[in-house]
Amino acid sequence: MKKTPSTLSTLENAGLSAEDQLLFSNARPRPYEPYPIKAIEDFANWARANSLWILAFGTGCCSIELRPLMTARFDASRFGVAGRPTPRQSSVFIIGGYVSVKTLKRIVRSYEQMQGPKFIIALGSCPANGGMYFDSYNTINQFDLYLPVDLYVTGCMPRPEALLGAILELQDDIKAGKCDGANRYIEHFDEYKANQKKVIKDWNMPDYNW
């Protein structure tokens, strides 16, 4: 995907009615620089990696694999993983399985409300290439067209062990400073938005959900 500098300084919010436009912010999101001193950034990344709060939003059938993670058998809380019911406070979005167009709209909305740095783990075959729903009229086939994905876990469905492994790998990547999905999203904002609007036909929300 190539980077296109946008000429507009604000968003159009064309999907909103005139009086609703007054209620929502039309500012463009800006990419954020890491801390100038590398040691501080590394320390911050260590903290981020060891405190992953998962947004409790089950988007599809693979989300059923999220629940055992908290039970006695797998106990993800020893790695600092916790569920968080509000997007404002969570840092990891686990896309649980197939994503229908209707859900995609909510996913975009929740993802944009999360505060950076934020990470996406896409679970199962369906977000990767459509999986068994590759010819469905209502589920998307390539999730990374619409939002930046840090890690794919394949399988239909993946076992909780696979998800736990993915979380550990995500921690390693975060510590290495490789997970920069939030900035990638903002740098290629116009491409991502165009892809989203190509499938979400009733766009009745602001262009960026602050």
Binding site: V101, K102, K105, D135, Y137, N138, Q142, K201, D202, W203
Partner: peptide, 24 residues
């Protein structure tokens, strides 16, 4: 379906594979 703009999808003359390939 939100904002559906094609033929009703459960009609049998609706080609779901073609639609999926074009749209997604």
């Amino acid at each position: 379906l939100e904002g559906w703009d094609a033929m009703p999808p459960m009609r049998r003359d609706f080609d779901t594979a073609k639609y999926s390939a074009e749209r997604f």
